[in-house]
Design a binder for these strands. Sequence first.
DNA 1: CGCGTCCGCCGTACTTTGTACCGTTCACTG
DNA 2: CAGTGAACGGTACAAAGTACGGCGGACGCG
Lengths: 236, 236
Amino acid sequence: MINGELAEHVAEQRKRPGGRTVALTPDRIIEAALRIADAEGDLDRLTVRRLAAELNVGTMTLYGYFRSRDEILDGMADHALGRMKLPAEPDSGPAEALRTVGYAFLAMMREHPSVARLLATRVTDSRTALRGAMEAVLRRLVDAGVPGKIAVRCYGFLITYAIGFIGYQTPRPWGALSNAESIEQRRRRIHFYAGLPSDEFPLVVRYADAIVDLPSDSQFTAGLEAYIASTLRELD
Amino acid sequence: MINGELAEHVAEQRKRPGGRTVALTPDRIIEAALRIADAEGDLDRLTVRRLAAELNVGTMTLYGYFRSRDEILDGMADHALGRMKLPAEPDSGPAEALRTVGYAFLAMMREHPSVARLLATRVTDSRTALRGAMEAVLRRLVDAGVPGKIAVRCYGFLITYAIGFIGYQTPRPWGALSNAESIEQRRRRIHFYAGLPSDEFPLVVRYADAIVDLPSDSQFTAGLEAYIASTLRELD
DNA sequence: CGCGTCCGCCGTACTTTGTACCGTTCACTG
DNA sequence: CAGTGAACGGTACAAAGTACGGCGGACGCG
Protein backbone atom coordinates (compact mmCIF):
# COMPACT_ATOMS: atom_id res chain seq x y z
CA MET A 1 0.00 0.00 0.00
CA ILE A 2 1.47 3.35 -0.96
CA ASN A 3 1.60 6.31 1.34
CA GLY A 4 -1.18 8.36 -0.15
CA GLU A 5 -3.60 5.52 0.19
CA LEU A 6 -2.44 4.77 3.69
CA ALA A 7 -2.96 8.34 4.91
CA GLU A 8 -6.37 8.45 3.33
CA HIS A 9 -7.29 5.13 4.84
CA VAL A 10 -6.33 6.29 8.31
CA ALA A 11 -8.17 9.56 7.94
CA GLU A 12 -11.27 7.76 6.83
CA GLN A 13 -10.97 5.38 9.72
CA ARG A 14 -10.94 8.21 12.23
CA LYS A 15 -13.99 9.75 10.68
CA ARG A 16 -15.98 6.55 10.81
CA PRO A 17 -19.22 6.99 12.73
CA GLY A 18 -18.72 5.79 16.25
CA GLY A 19 -15.03 5.81 15.53
CA ARG A 20 -12.38 7.22 17.75
CA THR A 21 -12.59 10.96 17.95
CA VAL A 22 -11.04 11.40 21.35
CA ALA A 23 -7.56 10.76 22.65
CA LEU A 24 -6.59 7.19 23.39
CA THR A 25 -5.94 6.70 27.09
CA PRO A 26 -5.38 3.66 29.30
CA ASP A 27 -8.76 4.26 30.90
CA ARG A 28 -10.58 4.32 27.61
CA ILE A 29 -8.86 1.14 26.57
CA ILE A 30 -9.85 -0.58 29.79
CA GLU A 31 -13.41 0.61 29.48
CA ALA A 32 -13.67 -0.77 25.98
CA ALA A 33 -12.17 -4.04 27.20
CA LEU A 34 -14.78 -4.27 29.94
CA ARG A 35 -17.52 -3.53 27.46
CA ILE A 36 -16.39 -6.32 25.17
CA ALA A 37 -15.75 -8.88 27.89
CA ASP A 38 -19.05 -8.19 29.63
CA ALA A 39 -20.93 -8.43 26.37
CA GLU A 40 -19.18 -11.51 25.04
CA GLY A 41 -19.42 -13.40 28.25
CA ASP A 42 -16.05 -15.01 27.94
CA LEU A 43 -12.67 -13.56 28.69
CA ASP A 44 -11.13 -15.71 26.00
CA ARG A 45 -13.15 -13.82 23.48
CA LEU A 46 -11.53 -10.56 24.48
CA THR A 47 -8.62 -10.57 22.07
CA VAL A 48 -6.11 -7.84 21.59
CA ARG A 49 -7.06 -7.61 17.95
CA ARG A 50 -10.73 -7.27 18.74
CA LEU A 51 -10.10 -4.64 21.35
CA ALA A 52 -7.98 -2.64 18.94
CA ALA A 53 -10.67 -2.88 16.27
CA GLU A 54 -13.28 -1.63 18.72
CA LEU A 55 -11.11 1.41 19.39
CA ASN A 56 -10.32 1.92 15.72
CA VAL A 57 -6.61 1.61 16.21
CA GLY A 58 -4.02 -0.88 15.07
CA THR A 59 -3.41 -3.94 17.16
CA MET A 60 0.06 -3.02 18.22
CA THR A 61 -0.94 0.43 19.34
CA LEU A 62 -2.28 -1.06 22.53
CA TYR A 63 1.18 -2.30 23.41
CA GLY A 64 2.20 1.30 23.84
CA TYR A 65 -0.18 1.48 26.79
CA PHE A 66 0.06 -2.00 28.25
CA ARG A 67 2.93 -4.39 28.24
CA SER A 68 0.77 -7.43 27.59
CA ARG A 69 -2.76 -8.72 27.39
CA ASP A 70 -2.42 -9.84 30.98
CA GLU A 71 -1.75 -6.29 32.05
CA ILE A 72 -4.98 -5.26 30.36
CA LEU A 73 -6.83 -7.94 32.28
CA ASP A 74 -5.34 -6.71 35.53
CA GLY A 75 -6.32 -3.21 34.56
CA MET A 76 -9.92 -4.28 34.14
CA ALA A 77 -10.11 -5.66 37.66
CA ASP A 78 -8.45 -2.55 39.05
CA HIS A 79 -10.73 -0.27 37.15
CA ALA A 80 -13.94 -1.92 38.29
CA LEU A 81 -12.83 -2.33 41.88
CA GLY A 82 -11.43 1.18 42.01
CA ARG A 83 -14.66 2.75 40.86
CA MET A 84 -17.06 0.64 42.83
CA LYS A 85 -19.79 2.90 44.12
CA LEU A 86 -21.13 2.94 47.64
CA PRO A 87 -24.36 4.91 48.03
CA ALA A 88 -23.96 8.33 49.62
CA GLU A 89 -26.55 8.02 52.38
CA PRO A 90 -25.00 7.05 55.69
CA ASP A 91 -25.92 3.75 57.29
CA SER A 92 -28.05 3.55 60.39
CA GLY A 93 -25.82 0.99 62.01
CA PRO A 94 -23.57 -2.04 61.51
CA ALA A 95 -26.27 -4.22 59.98
CA GLU A 96 -27.17 -1.71 57.34
CA ALA A 97 -23.55 -0.98 56.58
CA LEU A 98 -22.89 -4.65 55.95
CA ARG A 99 -25.93 -4.82 53.73
CA THR A 100 -24.80 -1.74 51.80
CA VAL A 101 -21.39 -3.19 51.16
CA GLY A 102 -22.66 -6.63 50.25
CA TYR A 103 -25.05 -5.27 47.67
CA ALA A 104 -22.41 -2.90 46.34
CA PHE A 105 -20.14 -5.84 45.60
CA LEU A 106 -23.00 -7.71 44.03
CA ALA A 107 -24.00 -4.74 41.89
CA MET A 108 -20.46 -4.14 40.70
CA MET A 109 -20.01 -7.76 39.69
CA ARG A 110 -23.37 -7.89 38.04
CA GLU A 111 -22.48 -4.82 36.00
CA HIS A 112 -19.15 -6.38 35.10
CA PRO A 113 -19.54 -10.14 35.19
CA SER A 114 -16.13 -10.48 33.62
CA VAL A 115 -14.60 -8.86 36.68
CA ALA A 116 -15.95 -11.59 38.93
CA ARG A 117 -14.09 -14.08 36.74
CA LEU A 118 -11.01 -11.95 36.87
CA LEU A 119 -11.09 -11.69 40.64
CA ALA A 120 -11.46 -15.43 40.91
CA THR A 121 -8.19 -15.75 39.04
CA ARG A 122 -5.90 -12.93 39.99
CA VAL A 123 -5.06 -10.84 43.02
CA THR A 124 -4.90 -7.14 42.54
CA ASP A 125 -3.01 -4.92 44.92
CA SER A 126 -3.02 -1.76 42.87
CA ARG A 127 -3.62 1.42 44.75
CA THR A 128 -6.62 2.30 42.65
CA ALA A 129 -8.33 -0.92 43.62
CA LEU A 130 -7.29 -0.71 47.26
CA ARG A 131 -8.59 2.82 47.55
CA GLY A 132 -11.89 2.23 45.76
CA ALA A 133 -12.68 -1.06 47.39
CA MET A 134 -10.82 -2.02 50.52
CA GLU A 135 -10.20 1.35 52.14
CA ALA A 136 -13.65 2.64 51.21
CA VAL A 137 -15.39 -0.45 52.52
CA LEU A 138 -13.45 -0.48 55.77
CA ARG A 139 -14.22 3.20 56.24
CA ARG A 140 -17.88 2.55 55.73
CA LEU A 141 -18.00 -0.31 58.20
CA VAL A 142 -15.86 1.34 60.84
CA ASP A 143 -17.91 4.53 60.62
CA ALA A 144 -21.04 2.49 61.23
CA GLY A 145 -19.57 1.09 64.39
CA VAL A 146 -17.92 -2.15 63.33
CA PRO A 147 -14.56 -2.68 65.07
CA GLY A 148 -11.63 -2.60 62.63
CA LYS A 149 -10.55 -6.22 62.87
CA ILE A 150 -14.06 -7.45 62.41
CA ALA A 151 -14.56 -5.04 59.53
CA VAL A 152 -11.61 -6.65 57.77
CA ARG A 153 -13.14 -10.07 58.25
CA CYS A 154 -16.43 -8.84 56.90
CA TYR A 155 -14.75 -7.32 53.88
CA GLY A 156 -13.16 -10.65 53.09
CA PHE A 157 -16.37 -12.54 53.54
CA LEU A 158 -18.48 -10.19 51.50
CA ILE A 159 -16.22 -9.98 48.48
CA THR A 160 -15.57 -13.68 48.60
CA TYR A 161 -19.23 -14.50 48.80
CA ALA A 162 -20.11 -12.16 45.94
CA ILE A 163 -17.41 -13.64 43.70
CA GLY A 164 -18.61 -17.15 44.32
CA PHE A 165 -22.24 -16.22 43.94
CA ILE A 166 -21.82 -14.45 40.63
CA GLY A 167 -19.64 -17.22 39.30
CA TYR A 168 -22.11 -19.85 40.31
CA GLN A 169 -25.09 -17.85 39.19
CA THR A 170 -24.27 -16.39 35.87
CA PRO A 171 -25.56 -18.65 33.16
CA ARG A 172 -24.26 -18.57 29.67
CA PRO A 173 -24.65 -16.31 27.86
CA TRP A 174 -23.87 -13.73 30.50
CA GLY A 175 -25.87 -10.99 28.92
CA ALA A 176 -29.12 -10.06 30.59
CA LEU A 177 -31.91 -12.28 29.40
CA SER A 178 -35.26 -10.89 28.51
CA ASN A 179 -38.03 -11.72 30.92
CA ALA A 180 -39.67 -14.24 28.62
CA GLU A 181 -36.36 -15.93 27.97
CA SER A 182 -35.54 -16.27 31.63
CA ILE A 183 -38.93 -17.75 32.42
CA GLU A 184 -38.50 -20.21 29.62
CA GLN A 185 -35.03 -21.07 30.81
CA ARG A 186 -36.30 -21.59 34.34
CA ARG A 187 -38.95 -23.95 33.07
CA ARG A 188 -36.40 -25.93 31.13
CA ARG A 189 -34.10 -26.23 34.11
CA ILE A 190 -36.85 -27.47 36.40
CA HIS A 191 -37.76 -29.98 33.77
CA PHE A 192 -34.19 -31.17 33.65
CA TYR A 193 -33.77 -31.74 37.38
CA ALA A 194 -37.24 -33.15 37.91
CA GLY A 195 -36.74 -35.54 35.01
CA LEU A 196 -33.70 -37.30 36.43
CA PRO A 197 -34.16 -40.92 37.54
CA SER A 198 -35.66 -40.61 40.99
CA ASP A 199 -34.13 -43.80 42.35
CA GLU A 200 -30.70 -42.38 41.80
CA PHE A 201 -31.43 -38.72 42.54
CA PRO A 202 -34.37 -38.73 44.95
CA LEU A 203 -33.58 -35.45 46.63
CA VAL A 204 -32.57 -33.58 43.50
CA VAL A 205 -35.84 -34.61 41.85
CA ARG A 206 -37.92 -33.74 44.87
CA TYR A 207 -36.44 -30.30 45.39
CA ALA A 208 -35.94 -29.42 41.74
CA ASP A 209 -37.71 -26.10 42.03
CA ALA A 210 -35.61 -25.00 44.98
CA ILE A 211 -32.44 -25.99 43.15
CA VAL A 212 -33.40 -23.95 40.14
CA ASP A 213 -33.80 -20.91 42.36
CA LEU A 214 -30.35 -21.21 43.83
CA PRO A 215 -28.89 -18.52 41.56
CA SER A 216 -31.60 -16.00 42.41
CA ASP A 217 -31.01 -12.80 44.29
CA SER A 218 -33.13 -13.91 47.21
CA GLN A 219 -30.57 -16.65 47.79
CA PHE A 220 -27.82 -14.08 47.92
CA THR A 221 -29.85 -12.09 50.39
CA ALA A 222 -30.52 -15.14 52.55
CA GLY A 223 -26.83 -15.94 52.89
CA LEU A 224 -25.98 -12.32 53.48
CA GLU A 225 -28.57 -11.83 56.20
CA ALA A 226 -27.50 -15.00 57.94
CA TYR A 227 -23.95 -13.74 58.05
CA ILE A 228 -25.01 -10.30 59.23
CA ALA A 229 -27.15 -11.72 62.01
CA SER A 230 -24.28 -13.73 63.38
CA THR A 231 -21.84 -10.88 63.13
CA LEU A 232 -24.16 -8.58 65.04
CA ARG A 233 -24.49 -11.09 67.81
CA GLU A 234 -20.71 -11.13 68.06
CA LEU A 235 -20.65 -7.37 68.52
CA ASP A 236 -22.70 -7.45 71.70
CA MET B 1 9.22 -39.30 6.97
CA ILE B 2 9.16 -42.81 5.55
CA ASN B 3 7.31 -45.68 7.09
CA GLY B 4 10.20 -47.50 8.63
CA GLU B 5 11.32 -44.48 10.52
CA LEU B 6 7.84 -43.70 11.65
CA ALA B 7 7.22 -47.15 13.10
CA GLU B 8 10.50 -47.06 14.91
CA HIS B 9 9.73 -43.67 16.31
CA VAL B 10 6.37 -44.79 17.65
CA ALA B 11 7.79 -47.93 19.20
CA GLU B 12 10.46 -45.94 20.91
CA GLN B 13 7.90 -43.52 22.24
CA ARG B 14 5.93 -46.25 23.93
CA LYS B 15 9.05 -47.62 25.56
CA ARG B 16 10.06 -44.27 26.94
CA PRO B 17 10.65 -44.41 30.70
CA GLY B 18 7.57 -43.19 32.49
CA GLY B 19 5.76 -43.65 29.27
CA ARG B 20 2.26 -44.90 28.80
CA THR B 21 1.99 -48.54 29.67
CA VAL B 22 -1.72 -48.66 30.49
CA ALA B 23 -4.77 -48.15 28.36
CA LEU B 24 -5.79 -44.62 27.55
CA THR B 25 -9.18 -43.78 29.04
CA PRO B 26 -11.16 -40.57 29.44
CA ASP B 27 -10.61 -40.76 33.18
CA ARG B 28 -6.89 -41.05 32.85
CA ILE B 29 -6.85 -38.10 30.49
CA ILE B 30 -8.86 -36.00 32.88
CA GLU B 31 -6.67 -36.96 35.79
CA ALA B 32 -3.58 -35.93 33.90
CA ALA B 33 -5.27 -32.67 32.95
CA LEU B 34 -6.06 -31.98 36.60
CA ARG B 35 -2.50 -32.78 37.55
CA ILE B 36 -1.12 -30.33 35.04
CA ALA B 37 -3.61 -27.55 35.72
CA ASP B 38 -3.23 -27.83 39.48
CA ALA B 39 0.53 -27.79 39.19
CA GLU B 40 0.79 -25.00 36.66
CA GLY B 41 -1.65 -22.79 38.43
CA ASP B 42 -3.20 -21.44 35.29
CA LEU B 43 -5.78 -23.06 33.09
CA ASP B 44 -4.32 -21.30 30.07
CA ARG B 45 -1.18 -23.29 30.55
CA LEU B 46 -3.06 -26.53 30.14
CA THR B 47 -2.69 -26.94 26.40
CA VAL B 48 -3.82 -29.92 24.40
CA ARG B 49 -0.28 -30.48 23.21
CA ARG B 50 1.08 -30.42 26.73
CA LEU B 51 -1.56 -32.82 27.97
CA ALA B 52 -0.87 -35.21 25.11
CA ALA B 53 2.85 -35.06 25.82
CA GLU B 54 2.23 -35.84 29.49
CA LEU B 55 0.34 -38.94 28.40
CA ASN B 56 2.90 -39.85 25.78
CA VAL B 57 0.40 -39.79 22.96
CA GLY B 58 0.02 -37.67 19.90
CA THR B 59 -1.92 -34.46 20.19
CA MET B 60 -4.81 -35.56 18.04
CA THR B 61 -5.31 -38.79 19.91
CA LEU B 62 -7.11 -36.87 22.61
CA TYR B 63 -9.72 -35.79 20.12
CA GLY B 64 -10.84 -39.38 19.93
CA TYR B 65 -11.96 -39.07 23.54
CA PHE B 66 -13.11 -35.48 23.72
CA ARG B 67 -14.58 -33.28 21.08
CA SER B 68 -12.70 -30.18 22.11
CA ARG B 69 -10.50 -28.67 24.75
CA ASP B 70 -13.59 -27.23 26.34
CA GLU B 71 -15.02 -30.66 26.80
CA ILE B 72 -11.87 -31.65 28.64
CA LEU B 73 -12.26 -28.66 30.93
CA ASP B 74 -15.86 -29.63 31.64
CA GLY B 75 -14.68 -33.13 32.31
CA MET B 76 -12.26 -31.87 34.92
CA ALA B 77 -15.00 -30.11 36.85
CA ASP B 78 -17.24 -33.15 36.62
CA HIS B 79 -14.51 -35.47 37.72
CA ALA B 80 -13.59 -33.49 40.81
CA LEU B 81 -17.16 -32.77 41.82
CA GLY B 82 -18.23 -36.33 41.14
CA ARG B 83 -15.57 -37.81 43.37
CA MET B 84 -15.76 -35.35 46.18
CA LYS B 85 -15.39 -37.25 49.41
CA LEU B 86 -17.59 -36.84 52.46
CA PRO B 87 -16.23 -38.54 55.57
CA ALA B 88 -17.98 -41.78 56.51
CA GLU B 89 -18.77 -41.01 60.14
CA PRO B 90 -22.34 -39.80 60.57
CA ASP B 91 -22.94 -36.27 61.84
CA SER B 92 -24.30 -35.60 65.29
CA GLY B 93 -26.75 -33.00 64.03
CA PRO B 94 -27.41 -30.21 61.56
CA ALA B 95 -24.51 -28.03 62.67
CA GLU B 96 -21.97 -30.77 62.28
CA ALA B 97 -23.41 -31.82 58.94
CA LEU B 98 -23.03 -28.28 57.62
CA ARG B 99 -19.48 -28.18 58.90
CA THR B 100 -18.72 -31.52 57.25
CA VAL B 101 -20.02 -30.36 53.90
CA GLY B 102 -18.34 -26.97 54.06
CA TYR B 103 -14.95 -28.46 54.78
CA ALA B 104 -15.47 -31.13 52.12
CA PHE B 105 -15.95 -28.43 49.50
CA LEU B 106 -12.95 -26.57 50.78
CA ALA B 107 -10.80 -29.70 50.77
CA MET B 108 -11.84 -30.61 47.26
CA MET B 109 -11.03 -27.18 45.93
CA ARG B 110 -7.78 -27.03 47.77
CA GLU B 111 -6.76 -30.35 46.27
CA HIS B 112 -7.78 -29.08 42.82
CA PRO B 113 -7.45 -25.32 42.77
CA SER B 114 -8.05 -25.35 39.05
CA VAL B 115 -11.52 -26.73 39.66
CA ALA B 116 -12.48 -23.70 41.69
CA ARG B 117 -11.58 -21.59 38.66
CA LEU B 118 -13.51 -23.90 36.43
CA LEU B 119 -16.60 -23.73 38.62
CA ALA B 120 -16.41 -19.96 38.62
CA THR B 121 -16.66 -20.07 34.86
CA ARG B 122 -18.88 -22.92 33.79
CA VAL B 123 -21.96 -24.72 35.03
CA THR B 124 -21.85 -28.46 35.08
CA ASP B 125 -25.00 -30.52 35.08
CA SER B 126 -23.47 -33.87 34.34
CA ARG B 127 -24.89 -36.78 36.25
CA THR B 128 -21.52 -37.66 37.65
CA ALA B 129 -21.20 -34.26 39.23
CA LEU B 130 -24.79 -34.16 40.40
CA ARG B 131 -24.48 -37.54 42.05
CA GLY B 132 -21.14 -36.92 43.70
CA ALA B 133 -21.86 -33.42 44.88
CA MET B 134 -25.45 -32.26 44.95
CA GLU B 135 -27.32 -35.46 45.74
CA ALA B 136 -24.71 -36.64 48.21
CA VAL B 137 -24.64 -33.31 50.03
CA LEU B 138 -28.41 -33.03 50.21
CA ARG B 139 -28.58 -36.58 51.55
CA ARG B 140 -26.07 -35.75 54.20
CA LEU B 141 -27.88 -32.63 55.33
CA VAL B 142 -31.35 -34.13 55.21
CA ASP B 143 -30.20 -37.17 57.16
CA ALA B 144 -28.85 -34.89 59.84
CA GLY B 145 -32.21 -33.23 60.19
CA VAL B 146 -32.05 -30.24 57.89
CA PRO B 147 -35.34 -29.74 56.01
CA GLY B 148 -34.99 -30.27 52.26
CA LYS B 149 -35.57 -26.73 51.05
CA ILE B 150 -33.14 -25.34 53.56
CA ALA B 151 -30.64 -28.02 52.67
CA VAL B 152 -30.74 -26.81 49.08
CA ARG B 153 -30.07 -23.26 50.19
CA CYS B 154 -27.19 -24.42 52.34
CA TYR B 155 -25.73 -26.38 49.45
CA GLY B 156 -25.77 -23.26 47.32
CA PHE B 157 -24.24 -21.12 50.00
CA LEU B 158 -21.50 -23.56 50.90
CA ILE B 159 -20.28 -24.25 47.38
CA THR B 160 -20.53 -20.60 46.46
CA TYR B 161 -18.59 -19.54 49.53
CA ALA B 162 -15.89 -22.13 48.93
CA ILE B 163 -15.47 -21.08 45.30
CA GLY B 164 -15.09 -17.45 46.24
CA PHE B 165 -12.80 -18.19 49.12
CA ILE B 166 -10.39 -20.35 47.16
CA GLY B 167 -10.35 -17.91 44.29
CA TYR B 168 -9.64 -15.01 46.57
CA GLN B 169 -7.18 -16.94 48.63
CA THR B 170 -4.95 -18.82 46.33
CA PRO B 171 -1.83 -16.83 45.71
CA ARG B 172 0.29 -17.32 42.69
CA PRO B 173 1.89 -19.74 42.23
CA TRP B 174 -0.83 -22.11 43.30
CA GLY B 175 1.46 -24.89 44.33
CA ALA B 176 1.87 -25.46 48.04
CA LEU B 177 4.56 -23.23 49.42
CA SER B 178 7.08 -24.51 51.88
CA ASN B 179 6.65 -23.26 55.40
CA ALA B 180 9.59 -20.91 55.23
CA GLU B 181 8.38 -19.47 51.98
CA SER B 182 4.90 -18.81 53.27
CA ILE B 183 6.22 -17.08 56.36
CA GLU B 184 8.46 -14.95 54.20
CA GLN B 185 5.57 -14.15 51.88
CA ARG B 186 3.38 -13.19 54.81
CA ARG B 187 6.07 -10.83 56.06
CA ARG B 188 6.35 -9.22 52.66
CA ARG B 189 2.62 -8.73 52.37
CA ILE B 190 2.33 -7.10 55.77
CA HIS B 191 5.18 -4.84 54.79
CA PHE B 192 3.35 -3.88 51.63
CA TYR B 193 0.07 -2.93 53.27
CA ALA B 194 1.66 -1.27 56.27
CA GLY B 195 3.93 0.73 54.01
CA LEU B 196 1.17 2.47 52.09
CA PRO B 197 0.73 6.21 52.66
CA SER B 198 -1.29 6.39 55.85
CA ASP B 199 -3.07 9.61 54.95
CA GLU B 200 -4.63 7.94 51.97
CA PHE B 201 -5.06 4.44 53.41
CA PRO B 202 -5.41 4.91 57.16
CA LEU B 203 -7.46 1.79 57.78
CA VAL B 204 -5.53 -0.47 55.45
CA VAL B 205 -2.29 0.55 57.12
CA ARG B 206 -3.67 0.15 60.60
CA TYR B 207 -5.13 -3.29 60.06
CA ALA B 208 -2.46 -4.59 57.71
CA ASP B 209 -1.92 -7.74 59.73
CA ALA B 210 -5.61 -8.63 59.74
CA ILE B 211 -5.79 -8.05 55.99
CA VAL B 212 -2.89 -10.35 55.36
CA ASP B 213 -4.69 -13.09 57.27
CA LEU B 214 -7.84 -12.83 55.17
CA PRO B 215 -6.95 -15.84 53.02
CA SER B 216 -6.27 -18.07 56.04
CA ASP B 217 -8.36 -21.06 56.96
CA SER B 218 -9.52 -19.46 60.17
CA GLN B 219 -11.27 -16.85 58.05
CA PHE B 220 -13.08 -19.55 56.16
CA THR B 221 -14.10 -21.11 59.45
CA ALA B 222 -15.33 -17.80 60.82
CA GLY B 223 -17.64 -17.19 57.88
CA LEU B 224 -18.81 -20.78 57.91
CA GLU B 225 -19.61 -20.78 61.62
CA ALA B 226 -21.48 -17.51 61.33
CA TYR B 227 -23.64 -18.98 58.61
CA ILE B 228 -24.22 -22.19 60.55
CA ALA B 229 -25.23 -20.33 63.67
CA SER B 230 -27.87 -18.35 61.82
CA THR B 231 -29.18 -21.37 60.00
CA LEU B 232 -29.58 -23.29 63.22
CA ARG B 233 -31.54 -20.46 64.73
CA GLU B 234 -33.85 -20.63 61.76
CA LEU B 235 -34.48 -24.31 62.39
CA ASP B 236 -35.98 -23.70 65.82
C1' DC C 1 10.66 29.26 6.78
C1' DG C 2 13.54 24.88 6.96
C1' DC C 3 15.13 21.10 9.42
C1' DG C 4 15.94 17.76 12.86
C1' DT C 5 13.89 15.15 16.67
C1' DC C 6 10.62 12.73 19.01
C1' DC C 7 6.34 10.44 19.88
C1' DG C 8 2.29 8.02 18.63
C1' DC C 9 0.97 4.66 15.65
C1' DC C 10 0.86 0.25 13.23
C1' DG C 11 2.32 -3.31 9.23
C1' DT C 12 4.96 -7.41 9.12
C1' DA C 13 6.27 -11.57 10.71
C1' DC C 14 7.20 -15.23 14.04
C1' DT C 15 5.47 -18.42 17.64
C1' DT C 16 2.00 -20.94 19.94
C1' DT C 17 -2.44 -22.69 20.12
C1' DG C 18 -6.86 -25.39 18.83
C1' DT C 19 -8.41 -28.54 15.65
C1' DA C 20 -9.99 -30.54 10.70
C1' DC C 21 -8.57 -34.05 7.76
C1' DC C 22 -6.78 -38.16 6.46
C1' DG C 23 -3.17 -41.71 6.34
C1' DT C 24 -0.91 -45.45 9.19
C1' DT C 25 -0.48 -49.26 12.43
C1' DC C 26 -2.03 -53.22 14.70
C1' DA C 27 -4.95 -56.79 16.72
C1' DC C 28 -8.30 -59.75 15.40
C1' DT C 29 -11.38 -62.40 12.37
C1' DG C 30 -12.57 -65.66 8.82
C1' DC D 1 -3.05 -64.73 4.77
C1' DA D 2 -6.23 -61.03 3.21
C1' DG D 3 -9.67 -58.06 5.24
C1' DT D 4 -11.49 -55.03 8.61
C1' DG D 5 -12.13 -51.79 12.22
C1' DA D 6 -10.52 -49.07 15.88
C1' DA D 7 -6.91 -46.47 17.81
C1' DC D 8 -3.46 -43.37 16.89
C1' DG D 9 -0.89 -39.35 15.12
C1' DG D 10 1.35 -36.37 11.28
C1' DT D 11 0.37 -32.40 8.54
C1' DA D 12 -1.67 -28.22 7.81
C1' DC D 13 -4.32 -24.14 8.57
C1' DA D 14 -6.58 -20.30 11.15
C1' DA D 15 -6.46 -17.38 14.96
C1' DA D 16 -4.05 -15.39 18.76
C1' DG D 17 -0.09 -12.88 21.43
C1' DT D 18 3.66 -10.03 20.63
C1' DA D 19 8.80 -8.50 19.07
C1' DC D 20 10.63 -5.43 15.85
C1' DG D 21 11.29 -1.74 13.27
C1' DG D 22 9.48 1.85 10.08
C1' DC D 23 6.46 5.80 9.02
C1' DG D 24 4.42 10.38 9.52
C1' DG D 25 3.13 14.41 11.67
C1' DA D 26 3.81 17.85 15.59
C1' DC D 27 6.92 20.62 17.77
C1' DG D 28 11.05 23.21 18.82
C1' DC D 29 15.15 25.58 17.28
C1' DG D 30 17.94 28.16 14.13
